[in-house]
Computed example of a mutant assay.
Amino acid sequence: MTRLRFRTVVFDLDGTLADTAPDLTDALNHALGVLGRPAVPANDVRAMVGHGARALLRKGLAATGGGDETMVEEGFPIFLDWYEAHIADRSRPFPGVEAALDALAADGVALAVCTNKLEELARRFVSAIGWEDRFAAIVGGDTLPVRKPDPAPLLAAIEAAGGGPAAFVGDSITDTDTARAAGVPCVALSFGFSDRPPEALCADRLIDHWDELIPALATL
């Protein structure tokens, strides 16, 4: 394997490392049901993910008739309780993820996660899927006072993992905007939870499968 120039590679979680949409959909629809709302189709939920649980619930309410922040706060613990209990029931790593992570680690690259998922939920998911020892740092949406697309969480993840030079891998405009604000090169996936066409993400490189990650990073 060609040695990369990056000391650290940071990854988004939902829609990047793993397809978490099935469990997020179940949790959202459970909360909506308790609030007297109809379910949201799974494909619609994929485009709603990326800004944290409250934002997901807010979008779910908007898609089923609207709702104010009182409803969001009422539904939030219902969503969390369900999701914590079922966080990895149906979620799975994307094909090729673990081989790519193994190859990067074998090359001496430190790995980290920067997600808008609550840090405790991110750590719980990583543990549930058997990835406890893979990441040098995990920064969640509540780790700092700000979250992506503010660059601070990404920069904190890079520092906690050992420093740069670093690259970021994500699947949404939130991720590419974060990388740009942090001055970090970004690889985007064409198959994640984006709310727009992959080309509109304006990433430095766009890949269609995890097998393409390391060759893409080698060109940056």
Rank of each mutant, 00 (worst) to 15 (best):
M48T: 08
T20A: 03
G15H: 11
R5P: 12
D12Q: 07
A42I: 12
L35W: 08
D14K: 00
G36H: 04
A53Q: 10
P41E: 09
P22I: 00
L17M: 11
R37E: 06
T16L: 08
K59M: 13
A42Y: 00
D23E: 07
F11R: 01
D14S: 03
A27T: 07
T20W: 01
L35H: 13
P41L: 08
V34S: 11
D12V: 05
D19R: 04
V45M: 00
A55Q: 15
R58G: 14
A21M: 07
R54I: 09
D26M: 05
V45C: 00
G50W: 02
V34H: 13
T16N: 05
A39N: 12
R58I: 06
L24C: 10
H30A: 09
P38W: 03
F11C: 02
L32V: 11
V34A: 10
N29P: 05
A53N: 15
H30V: 15
A53K: 02
K59F: 13
R7T: 15
A55D: 13
G60T: 00
N29G: 10
A47F: 06
L13S: 11
L56E: 09
A62I: 01
T16K: 12
G36M: 07
D19V: 07
R37K: 09
K59I: 07
H51E: 15
N29V: 00
N29D: 05
V34R: 15
R5W: 11
A55S: 13
L17K: 01
D26W: 08
D44R: 12
L13K: 08
L56P: 06
H51A: 10
D23Y: 02
A21L: 09
F11W: 11
H51R: 13
P22W: 00
A39W: 06
H51S: 14
V40E: 08
D19Q: 04
T20L: 01
